[in-house]
Computed example of a mutant assay.
Amino acid sequence: MEPVPATFAFDARSWPRCMGMPIVLHQIFRQSDQKFVDMLESLRFARLSPQIIADLKKLSRPITYTDGIEPTELFPVRAHAEGANLERLRQLNSPPKVFNAVDELGRDRQGRRRLQHEVQLALDRLVAQEQVVLKVSSSFYLAYA
């Protein structure tokens, strides 16, 4: 089995053929405050001055959600996401329900059975976890009642 490195769609050799020429948008429609637009541009190109950093920090504020649904959090690495998930799970008082993956040896494209170590190498590269722990949250029922 050949290892397949993780890549992005735009890294594919077929990307330029499928996507054509890039389109660069220049006109901003959703922001009218030029200072804020300049700050966003500085972020985009990773050119942050101490003043821009200070101005961005001034924008920080607590946000109240009245619908019971919080925004999705994005993390740069899987370990950070797992840590956040575990912390939220610990806050729930309901009993945990554990779901374990059940993996079977499969066959390759030529129909040959895969060996256990080949399957394990493939599974190690997956994003899916071997075990998922879930709990019921009363706020889930409130949010979707």
Score class of each variant (00 low, 15 high):
W15P: 10
L40F: 09
A54Y: 02
P76E: 15
Q129H: 11
S137N: 07
Q110H: 11
Q131M: 02
L121S: 12
P22Q: 06
S138Q: 09
K58Q: 13
D108Y: 14
V24G: 08
S137A: 08
L126Y: 07
H117I: 12
E130I: 09
V119D: 03
S14M: 07
S138K: 14
N93K: 03
I69A: 10
R107P: 04
R107K: 15
R78T: 06
M19V: 10
L134S: 02
R17P: 02
P22N: 09
L56K: 00
L48H: 05
A143I: 04
C18K: 15
A128K: 05
E82F: 04
K135Q: 09
L25P: 10
D33Q: 05
Q120S: 15
Q131K: 15
R47L: 03
A79I: 04
K35T: 03
E87A: 09
P95R: 12
L40A: 04
S49E: 00
V37S: 04
L121V: 09
G106W: 09
A122M: 14
F140M: 11
R47K: 07
L86S: 00
T66A: 08
A143M: 13
D33N: 06
Q116M: 15
R113W: 06
N85V: 05
H26E: 02
R114K: 14
V136N: 04
G106N: 13
Y141A: 09
A101Q: 13
L142Q: 13
D124T: 13
V77F: 05
Q131E: 11
R88M: 11
L59D: 08
C18I: 12
R17T: 01
S14P: 02
R88W: 10
R88F: 07
M39S: 01
V132Q: 04
A101R: 15
I69M: 07
I69F: 06
L121R: 13
P16W: 01
A81P: 02
E104R: 13
A46E: 01
E104W: 13
E41L: 02
L86Y: 01
Q116S: 12
P16L: 00
L142F: 06
N100L: 12
H80L: 09
